[in-house]
Simulated scan of single mutants.
Amino acid sequence: MWFEADNLVLTVAQAACVALPAAGVPRALARFRNGWWALVLPLCIVVVIVAIDVTSVSADVLTWVALLLVPPGCALALGWAMRGARWWLAPLAAVLLAVAWADQDARGGQVATILLIMGSCVTLGRLLGGAAPTLLLKLGLVAMAISDAILVFGNTLQEPNAVLIAAQPGAGLPQLQSAAFHYASLGYGDFFAAGVLGGLLAIERRPQLIPAIAVLLVSLAWDQLFLVVDVLPATIPPAIVLIGVEIWAQVRARQRVGTLDA
């Protein structure tokens, strides 16, 4: 059986992104609701990999984009986007950034980075959940997992991803484009996929805790493939759980219809 405690920390963090998003977007943003937003999911992996493959400078740009956008995204999660959010919690994102910056090579800095990334993905999950039709967003999440799997198992993603992880904004600033805990690492897109799943469940008023636990369990089972491969696409577990949730919903709906007919 394959098991690494360091990897478990990241897996739990990813699963938490499913449980945390609340539902709805500000009324001012409702007019931007459009099905095209669902394309963000599959394209966020493909475009990044292609861009880095064309020029490694893209990785430097992306690490700066992450540095500039992840902390505000986390602040929005603490103050608005997550369940239990309070406006006065938003400044904690600045504290997390300070810890991630000052203690980059230690566990404290790594945990702060993980929390910053989690928060930003919770915000994105809530925003996308309210910005795109749910069916298209579900298809986008599955497409994201499929494209991720094709790139990983086709050995296309590993080299550009290594370049992205190694990219630094300079001046000793923290790297927020991916999360690491000791020897384990997880890409931003993996947290993003979980956050979108949480946003979908929230907007449809479905339970989120059980699917979050399911993501954790599916991830632990999926990780057994590390016995035979070195890299796995971690967007797969959220997609599997999404499919499972949809199948279970259909089963329950048919059971209710059968009960009424009886």
Rank of each mutant, 00 (worst) to 15 (best):
A28G: 04
L29C: 00
R31P: 03
F32M: 06
N34S: 15
G35W: 13
W37L: 03
L39G: 05
V40Y: 15
L41D: 03
P42F: 01
L43C: 03
I45T: 05
I45H: 01
I45D: 00
I45M: 04
V46P: 00
V46Q: 00
V46F: 02
V48C: 02
V50N: 03
S56Q: 13
D60G: 15
T63V: 15
W64C: 03
V65D: 00
A66H: 10
L67V: 07
V70L: 12
P71L: 15
P72V: 14
P72F: 13
A75E: 11
L76F: 07
L76T: 02
A77W: 11
L78G: 04
G79V: 10
W80V: 02
R83Q: 15
A85C: 04
R86W: 12
R86D: 13
W87Y: 08
A90G: 06
P91E: 07
P91H: 10
P91V: 06
L92H: 04
A93M: 05
A94I: 12
L96T: 09
L97Y: 15
L97Q: 08
V99S: 10
V99E: 13
A100R: 13
A100W: 14
D103H: 14
D103Y: 14
Q104E: 12
D105Q: 14
A106H: 11
A106L: 01
R107H: 05
G108P: 01
G109P: 08
Q110W: 07
V111H: 12
V111T: 11
A112N: 08
I114Q: 11
L115R: 08
L115D: 02
L116F: 10
L116H: 13
I117D: 13
M118K: 05
M118L: 11
G119D: 12
G119T: 13
V122H: 13
V122R: 04
R126D: 03
R126E: 03
L127W: 14
L127S: 07
G129K: 08
P133Q: 09
L135K: 09
L135E: 13
L136S: 05
L136V: 01
K138T: 02
G140F: 01
G140Q: 02
M144Q: 15
A145W: 00
A145Y: 00
S147G: 03
S147N: 03
L151W: 05
V152K: 09
Q158Y: 02
E159D: 10
A162E: 12
L164V: 06
A167F: 12
Q168R: 08
Q168N: 09
G170Q: 09
